[in-house]
């Protein structure tokens, strides 16, 4: 099936989509966005430095029709979510977002009800637009580069005024082998630094629940979950996090969850491998100290 990947130039994201493309074709085409060489091999490659979906849309629609793509692959991201709905409507294509598994015969799976249920759907016609949830498909290692044709952008409906990326010291949250996450139970912004000190001892990163982000104690870039980042660390510490299904959706592929919560009934204990029922302030400083001493 003729398949098109649309993604920013990012090894992991493109790698995951390349893996997914194997379900549909031998060699996909790509529209790669941003500056730099396009990593990996493709049938045809287009490139644009434009990254805003409303500005890209007319050119993508035109190209998709011209080339008769049957499958369009995107990631769950600001780009993928920005394109998926409009592309679906413009191409009269079914769209399935947040895909977590693909079976034969165009049957796909995605979670609903915050991950409390999984829906299986069969795609009955092409073209189809899919957005793929991060970390569910092993990224293909991309070798070599493909030269590209520029993608023409005709008009700019939306202007980029400024872009600010947060400086993160240490390991990025998505790749960290250990994640220490805080929830509303942390109580205030200052205490979040206790979690950072613990994470630093383990080459880890600090995450947060939506509860903590809503309180303004952690930046939205730290949010873990269905509408935050998807992580798959070896150990995930959930501290003062109740364990709402939408939060758990972001840690489904974590190997071991350690829950510290003062409510023994908290849902997080249903997902945890190890549980400590107590005020986190009694445990976190001790844990940090013990790890320091063990070195």
């Amino acid at each position: 099936m003729k398949t098109l990947i649309i993604e920013n130039i990012d090894l992991k994201k493109i790698g995951e989509l390349k893996t997914v493309s194997r379900y549909f074709c031998e060699l996909p085409d790509i529209i790669a966005l941003g500056e730099g060489d396009i990593p990996g091999n493709y049938g045809k490659a287009w490139q644009s430095s434009q990254t805003l979906p409303p500005n890209l849309l007319p050119s993508i629609v035109q190209l998709a029709k011209l080339e008769n793509y049957e499958v369009i692959l995107l990631s769950v991201s600001t780009l993928g979510t920005g394109l998926a709905g409009p592309l679906s409507a413009a191409l009269s294509a079914p769209v399935v977002t947040e895909v977590t598994a693909i079976h034969s015969d165009m049957v796909i799976e995605r979670p609903i009800y915050g991950g409390k249920a999984i829906i299986k759907q069969k795609i009955e016609s092409t073209p189809v637009v899919l957005t793929i949830r991060r970390k569910y498909f092993e990224p293909e290692v991309l070798e070599g580069h493909t030269s590209s044709i520029p993608l023409n952008i005709e008009s700019e409906k939306v202007q980029l005024i400024s872009e600010k990326n947060e400086q993160t010291d240490g390991v990025p949250l998505e790749d960290a082998p250990v994640v220490v996450s805080g929830g509303r139970g942390i109580g205030n912004a200052d205490n979040f630094s206790l979690l950072q000190t613990l994470a630093d001892q383990m080459n880890g990163a600090v995450g947060a629940s939506r509860g903590a982000v809503d309180e303004g104690w952690a930046s939205p870039t730290r949010q873990i979950g269905q509408t935050g980042k998807i992580v798959a660390p070896s150990v995930y510490f959930a501290v003062g996090v109740s364990g709402a299904s939408q939060h758990l959706a972001g840690i489904a592929n974590s190997k071991c969850v350690v829950a510290i919560n003062k409510d023994e009934e908290a849902n997080i204990f249903n997902r945890a491998r190890f549980g400590l029922v107590c005020d986190y302030q009694k445990i976190i400083p001790q844990l940090t100290q013990a790890i320091k001493e063990n070195r």
Binding site: A84, G85, P86, V95, T97, E98, I112, Y113
Partner: peptide, 15 residues
């Protein structure tokens, strides 16, 4: 908060 898909407003915008 039931279908969890983030797609309805994008389709609507294109319409």
């Amino acid at each position: 908060a039931d279908m969890d898909r983030g797609v309805v407003p994008g389709i609507l915008a294109q319409m």
